[in-house]
């Protein structure tokens, strides 16, 4: 069984968010890069768990980005990916990224494609749904559990106000979130093995961007917290009613 896990590079959750070049580019100075947590903790680790149950599983990793994404993809290999492809395209347009992944997936006969539910930088939650249209394959978003029985997958997913359990047959695409698996730390053996695992670089083939980022802005700082005396909750209620007008 071939699983394709999509890996994105994102700034660490505690990274300082700032912009340069007239607020048109993210300031990468001093930023620590990580595997997008949804891609790592949920989709990649679940794929590794499936491989631990079934040795016939092969975990293929794909990332779309420049050479600076290689430490990230090596870490994913160290965690337990078998082989990796990097498509050398630095576009920020989800449509371009999804088309690059689809081009690889079309030639790969993957039984399932796993993505995180969104990236923590652009928060678009788009790649899984775009792959669904590009590959004409079933897509189940916000998956919180996945079990595979022969050709059938049993998936639990979050819906608003609850959970839904469903079944589908391979091939399919899932976007994964909390519940799917628990975070792991790569061990020394994994880190050593990752150095020699295959990492193939493909040249970019998609160049037509459908969107372009014009500018970034940092939201204005809060004007400062207004402290209310703990013995005067009537005043807090008045502020929420008359000033904030939220109750």
């Amino acid at each position: 069984m071939n699983i394709l896990v999509c890996i994105s590079k994102t700034p660490d959750t505690t990274a300082k968010i700032a912009f340069v070049e007239g607020n048109t580019k993210f300031d990468e100075n001093g930023v620590q890069w990580i595997i997008n947590p949804y891609d790592e903790w949920y989709s990649l680790v679940r794929a590794i768990e499936l491989k631990e149950k079934n040795p016939n599983v092969i975990i293929h990793l794909i990332t779309v980005g420049g050479a600076d994404t290689e430490p990230i993809i090596r870490k994913a290999l160290a965690l337990g990916g078998d082989e990796a492809i990097r498509v050398n395209n630095t576009s920020n347009d989800s449509m371009v990224v999804a088309q690059e992944i689809a081009a690889v997936a079309k030639g790969g006969a993957y039984d399932m494609i796993l993505t995180g539910k969104e990236t923590i930088d652009y928060n678009s939650a788009s790649i899984g749904s775009m792959l669904c249209a590009l590959l004409d394959t079933t897509f189940i978003p916000n998956a919180i559990s996945l079990d595979v029985n022969g050709n059938t997958a049993i998936v639990k997913r979050e819906i608003e106000g609850g959970e839904e359990t469903c079944e589908t047959n391979i091939p399919f695409i899932l976007s994964c979130q909390k519940g799917m698996a628990e975070q792991r730390i790569p061990n020394m053996r994994g880190i050593m093995a990752a150095r020699t695992k295959p990492l193939k670089v493909l040249e970019a083939t998609i160049h037509n961007e459908t969107t372009s980022i014009q500018q970034f802005d940092i939201p204005p700082a809060k004007s400062g917290v207004k402290l209310v005396d703990p013995s005067n909750m009537d005043e807090l209620v008045r502020l929420l009613k008359e000033e904030a007008k939220v109750i």
Partner: peptide, 13 residues
Amino acid sequence: VFSGKAFASIKIE
């Protein structure tokens, strides 16, 4: 973007 820490103005082409 960046989980609410910034805004991006994006042109649809």
